[in-house]
Design a protein around this nucleic acid. Sequence first.
DNA 1: GAGTGGTCTAGACCACCCG
DNA 2: GGGTGGTCTAGACCACTCC
Lengths: 236, 236
Amino acid sequence: MLKYQEISDEIEKYIEDNELQQGDKLPILETLMTQFEASKSTITKSLDLLERKGVVYQVRGSGIFVRRHKRKGYISLFSNQGFKKELEGNHLTSEAIELEVRKPTKEAAHNLNIDLDDDVYYVKRVRYINGQTLCLEESFYNKSIVTYLNKEIISDSIFNYISEGLGLKVGFSDLYLRADKLKEEEAEYLGLQEGDPKIYVETIFHLTNGQPFDFSKISYNYEQSHFLFQATSHFL
Amino acid sequence: MLKYQEISDEIEKYIEDNELQQGDKLPILETLMTQFEASKSTITKSLDLLERKGVVYQVRGSGIFVRRHKRKGYISLFSNQGFKKELEGNHLTSEAIELEVRKPTKEAAHNLNIDLDDDVYYVKRVRYINGQTLCLEESFYNKSIVTYLNKEIISDSIFNYISEGLGLKVGFSDLYLRADKLKEEEAEYLGLQEGDPKIYVETIFHLTNGQPFDFSKISYNYEQSHFLFQATSHFL
DNA sequence: GAGTGGTCTAGACCACCCG
DNA sequence: GGGTGGTCTAGACCACTCC
């Protein structure tokens, strides 16, 4: 475990455990340096991490403060994988509808950067949150990277399996989001009416070496899908 | 201008100018160090910035590579302000519908962290992209921070005025996003039908010192609003 | 002006990729 | 094993805030 990671985690845990609120002041840099026996740069790196996670904000000449958003029940779209632990008390399950090896569509081949006669795993599933339909998901996995999948795996967390089971390292993803109307088939799976709104997301996941391995098309149930984004201007 | 900022900008410009594509390799760290006469840490910081902006990805033991997303016409929701220059050739205008000083709603007061008898600027406007309606926006500005607004300012870029004109420093924002159905009045402003989908976003903007100064409620035209998010797993 | 965070450097050492 | 990024340190100096 990296030192700055550990420190970052500890500080976050400290905030959680003591239920600190927005605006509460954390110890100053120097204190943290001695407390964690780390150099200034390392502490700074830990704090930058927390700042990007939306946990703290730093004010030059003043101090380090706790940042809290005010709403519960919102899903943070970013994370190592698709979702975040922020789902706290929420129960996430999946129902597999389809799973097979096939040739990619033109669209999938283009997004995965493979040929039309390469193999992909095609996965279709409905995901539930606390028993409610959350989304309908169609995914294409580059089979030369994700070499094996079965029903059991895709009913659980695919990304867990990919990193733990296959030892692959997920690097970055491009996520395209818009709203649209539900088609009849989608509405049926989600338990909504045709023409109802949906949030429609396409995502391309890449390994750390830049290779795309997963192209997914997801239609979200608009009643269940509340997303949170926390931005910090000087990181952009 | 900070050194790491400058270097970051120059590298980005270099990529643009030479139309480098996804996977193209950049010079190695040592080359960049001598070329920009900077230390390793500074170059690293520049590259981290670019990585978070989705411009490059770094592979340990291998090199630094260009990252490109494949789609045009998507808006990056993050930036110093509401939008990004990524709007490249796109023309963004605003039509002011309402502008007045008033008392905040309970909701606005809560989100801005002020009292019900404090003053806010209430701004309502429709924003257009290339002549099409993009969104309907209602904003509440804490008047003790944003001390003055007029029709001219709000027809242009409010955030530009806030940072340049008022000298305020925007720090971070919380953004809540979901889909819903358009109400009659909203549909009218956007030129759509009642019941059509919308992307509905509420945002709270804070100064660098953590003070919230803007609470906005925005309904996006689903036909025009395509959002792009670029995530990098190890920054979360 | 004291307190506090941010930038930048030089250099040591570690970890991963690839031929 | 050579090439290349990533982590970490100690310390100098700068910039902002707040009393």
